[in-house]
Design a protein around this nucleic acid. Sequence first.
DNA 1: CCGCATCCGTTTCGATACTG
DNA 2: CAGTATCGAAACGGATGCGG
Lengths: 215, 215
Amino acid sequence: MIAPRGKRSYREYCAIARSLDLLGQRWTLLIVRDLFLGPQRYSDLLAGLPGIATDLLTARLRTLEADGLVRRRELPPPAHTTVYELTESGRRLGPVIRALGEVGLELLGTPAPDEPVNPGPVVMSLMLSFHGDPDLVETYGLELDGQEFGVVVDRGTVRSERGAPSDAAVTLRTDARTLVLLLRGEPIPEGALKVDGDAAAFDRFVAAFAHDGRS
Amino acid sequence: MIAPRGKRSYREYCAIARSLDLLGQRWTLLIVRDLFLGPQRYSDLLAGLPGIATDLLTARLRTLEADGLVRRRELPPPAHTTVYELTESGRRLGPVIRALGEVGLELLGTPAPDEPVNPGPVVMSLMLSFHGDPDLVETYGLELDGQEFGVVVDRGTVRSERGAPSDAAVTLRTDARTLVLLLRGEPIPEGALKVDGDAAAFDRFVAAFAHDGRS
DNA sequence: CCGCATCCGTTTCGATACTG
DNA sequence: CAGTATCGAAACGGATGCGG
């Protein structure tokens, strides 16, 4: 049992209060979100959390570490950087992230012009919005704002990971905002999207993840 | 689309960030938790949220109302009180509450002596900890600290509601803390538990919800 | 009593500057 | 790159007051 943390614990014998003692502080669940696609460096996390103060990011990482949800790992030379990653316990938060995502997905309109659109969340939302052929088995590559992702569709389930997949049927190179506009059926800037690979696979990708009038 | 709220919105185009814009403030999800078992008066909510300031409860209820998750309803005479209840949108938060509960359930040890144990959360945790006969269909009545609940087991699923059920096989009258101790297999104060009804049904209840060495 | 509103000391957060 | 240090602004906790 992890002791409820200091001053601001809810101090109630309740499963939900206990999990909020771990996760309820501002930014904590967004950090978990970013780590769900794979290990991240401090500066990558900082870039993916628009507006967080640097000391708060440090504090949250320390707390998550103390609670056993996140682990610091020093990469061996020559990389010589430290990354943060979810532990086995941390990965059990998947259903929480998914449930929050499903609630929020319906509240997302078109991104406001001044609203940051980061690659990680966009890729993650794909796992929630799949509505293609239930028998489809295919892997897609995404390069968004220079970051590479693999999206694996396997009979109705969707996995996403950081890093270029080896077996992508098609790879889309663009920025996160343009991908959102594309999937919402809105006009996209000319030349903002490059498609490498099977054009039919590209069509299947758009059909499976487009957020247009399917209601 | 609900516009991201003022100052402390995350202002990121992300499904999880959006849902946390609605739910991420302190106490908000615990209020939703308490409303999940049925409508509650202001003072009942206050009693179920140990430590919340009165103006914060009011502020959170207003925000939840503005976001369409909670509705105020004036009961007709002669009751003449106002209750808060979840709207249809609010009830869609079920998976969020459930996911958080499953995370927190494993962190709950035995309640500390100074830790409040409220009936609502205890009843709600029953929905997460059922491990009885998958074919069992039975209704149980609970009266905890004077509050009545019905727990309906129906082939592996468990529903709970406020109010005494009409068709309970057995009714347990006790306090929330004693019920927790009972289900954890710990000694309970003499005379703290009264069982009304079928003794075999009581045994099935304990077997189905006990949290003892089943790992 | 119920359903809040007001006040005030404490804690947390946001923003930015700075360092090994 | 990966954090500390600093400081004003906002949020929170606790007590108290008040009209129906």
